[in-house]
Design a protein around this nucleic acid. Structure first.
Length: 575
RNA sequence: CGGAGCGUAGCUCAGUCUGGUUUAGAGCGCUGCGUUCGGGACGCAGAGGUCGGAGGUUCGAAUCCUCUCGCUCCGACCA
């Protein structure tokens, strides 16, 4: 490709308001352009990278016997009503009507569509297991897109769905898919991706893993043990923290005028936050009040609480709702509370500690020496609803947990029969008996992966693309092309590259050296060949790697074979 | 969906508070000519704008008021 014709200009200044490295460089390098909030056009350089990522994914899906399909983007609402998700998924599902007034939607994930296909095409155990996947545009009407391609509304996703006759078969395949994912991220050039235990959210099912590209701009918080054996999303992470009981002291009501927060009460009574119990009120989707009780030095983990409370939705309760249940905001207490009116869930940090300071359910009063076993009314649930903190002991090793940020680039789920049962996706077994299929699903964000590679591979001048997904392998720069036969020699070398099928981007614009090099850095191609009157006088060219300052002088007639060798070596690093 | 900010040339922005020397500007980018030529050169000449949109106030609105649309950031949410 000749750069004089390449669409997608490089931009000298950072786009305003962009925070993440990948967002800046994807815009500045001419890879993508914003069209609307969270909606992007992919330009030629970006498309080449995307295609290469997709090709790697296709090869690895083939290695686990995936069959590529293409399901519709626009789906009838009826299909999603079958699974129940038309109602259960929120506003991020874009719903609309067609000209006949029929309810339609834009697919944000394709369990329903693939089940629709499989239930009519697959009817025998002999056809199972089977996996179908696609690379397709998804649309999610995100409340707040951010970070360029890291959270877009329209994006390309590889989504795969497997169907099995048994849980064992699913689990075995799940491990194969997990291994394929590790190969994909390695080959794509993300050098720091970890798979972690995750919450399955709206997808349903029990076991799921997220593949996290470690990055300071990641939206998720994850906890990892120092030896790497334990890795979990904050939403589900647990710790083996121990609580100590001491001799129970008598309950004592104290006057605490105006002191509502944990910090205020603790310092007023000369105690630490860990000597207090904190009450947090939530309402679920049906406006039922939930009273969560946790030790003052912990935060409630809403993902855990949501699961334990079996609530579709959780919001902080307002003061009116709290008063209606007979509680005093700021001084709420597990004592004197009616378990009939409120669902009480107590974290084990409270149940296993002694002599805590808790509210008295009366303005300006607290109790000292609350002891769960002695003082708590009947009918409460004790569970782990705490958010793990950096340094808390790992549940496996007991070592202090490390906290990292990560970008979720992939996600795999053991779905079970959630969709196949609701949508009657069945097959006949050996005995001619109808059985429900067991499903798994496996996603990768393609554009997000491209952005994540930049987050892990860049310098002050631009991205440094791994050879496996670089838009081209070689950039040929001709300096002073109007002098001493440079243009002719560079054109000739370019033709040689093309003839030898070397992927080359040819800067034939005749710009000044600085301009040329800065553009080349923003394009981030792994190898750079520089030709100028100086090098041509010796029948040589300069050969440089992106990100390195030192150049190698190579004879003009040796450039092509030398580069072919270097490119092959470079590819080997990613196998 | 809450909070904050911003919409003026392709991009980054000044001008808005205090309406009138502004005939709407600068830098970068773009076109032409010339000089330069190894890490974003320079001169000259150009093209490019309904100042996000609608309504209002006024002799006069990019500037003041009302409504509206869009974008960004923080939070909530998020397979």
């Amino acid at each position: 490709m000749r750069m004089s014709k390449l669409v997608g200009r490089r931009i000298k200044e950072d786009p305003k308001d962009s925070k993440t490295i990948s967002h800046k460089y994807l815009i500045r390098g001419g890879y993508v352009r914003p069209v609307s909030a969270g909606i992007y056009s992919i330009l030629p350089l970006g498309k080449l990278i995307i295609d290469k990522i997709e090709q790697i994914i296709r090869e690895e899906m083939a290695s686990i016997e995936g069959q590529e399909v293409l399901l519709p983007v626009v789906l009838p609402a009826d299909l999603w009503k079958e699974s129940g998700r038309y109602e259960s998924v929120g506003a991020e599902l874009l719903r609309f009507e067609d000209r006949n007034g029929k309810a339609m939607l834009l697919g944000m994930t394709h369990e329903e569509a693939v089940v629709h296909l499989v239930r009519s095409e697959v009817s025998s155990y002999k056809q199972l297991p089977v996996m179908l996947y696609q690379l397709q545009t998804k649309y999610r009407d995100e409340a707040r897109p951010r970070g360029g391609l890291i959270r877009a509304r329209e994006f390309t996703m590889k989504d795969a769905y497997s169907f099995h006759t048994s849980q064992e078969c699913l689990e075995e395949y799940y491990m194969d898919a997990h291994a394929a994912y590790e190969r994909i991220f390695k080959r794509v050039g993300m050098n720091n991706v970890v798979s972690i235990e995750a919450d399955s959210g709206m997808m349903g099912g029990k076991i799921s893993h997220e593949f996290m590209a470690i990055s300071e701009f990641g939206e998720d918080t994850i906890f990892i043990s120092p030896d790497g054996s334990y890795r979990a999303n904050r939403e589900v992470a647990t710790s083996s923290i121990k609580f100590e009981k001491s001799e129970e002291l008598p309950l004592n009501k104290v006057h605490t005028p105006g002191h509502k927060t944990i910090e205020e009460v603790a310092s007023f009574l000369n105690k630490q936050p860990e000597n207090t119990g904190k009450a947090v009120f939530y309402v679920d989707g049906e406006q039922n009040l939930i009273f969560a009780m946790i030790r003052g030095d912990f935060e409630v983990n809403e993902s855990k609480l949501q699961k334990i409370a079996i609530a579709y939705e959780l919001n902080f309760a307002d003061d009116d709702a709290i008063r209606k249940a007979g509680c005093e905001p700021g001084y709420a207490s597990p004592l004197n509370i009616d378990p009939e009116k409120v669902k009480i869930i107590v974290d084990r940090s409270v149940a296993e500690s002694s002599n805590l300071i808790v509210g008295a359910n009366e303005a300006d009063y607290h109790y000292e020496n609350f002891n769960f076993d002695r003082d708590m009314p009947e009918g409460v649930t004790v569970a782990d609803i705490a958010t793990v903190r950096a340094g808390d002991p790992c549940p496996l090793t007991g070592e202090p947990l490390l906290m990292e940020r990560g970008i979720e680039v992939g996600n795999i789920f053991q779905l079970g029969t959630k969709y196949s049962e609701a949508m009657n996706c069945a097959y006949l077994d050996e005995n001619g008996k109808s059985q429900i299929m067991i499903m798994g699903c496996y996603g990768i964000g393609v554009g997000r992966s491209m952005a994540s590679v930049i987050e892990q591979s860049y310098d002050n001048w631009g991205p440094i693309w791994p050879i496996t997904i670089a838009p081209y392998h070689v950039q040929l720069c001709a300096l002073n092309r109007n002098k001493e036969g440079v243009a002719e020699a560079a054109d000739k070398l370019y033709e040689e590259f093309l003839a030898e099928k070397v992927e080359v981007l040819y800067d034939d614009r005749g710009e000044k050296a600085g301009f040329t090099f800065n553009d080349a850095d923003l394009i981030g191609i792994p190898f750079r060949v520089i030709m100028s009157p100086k090098t041509l006088a010796e029948s040589k060219v300069e050969l440089k790697r992106r990100g390195e300052r030192d150049a190698l002088m190579v004879d003009l007639d040796q450039v092509v074979p030398e580069l072919q060798k270097l490119i092959a070596e470079e590819f080997n690093k990613y196998e």
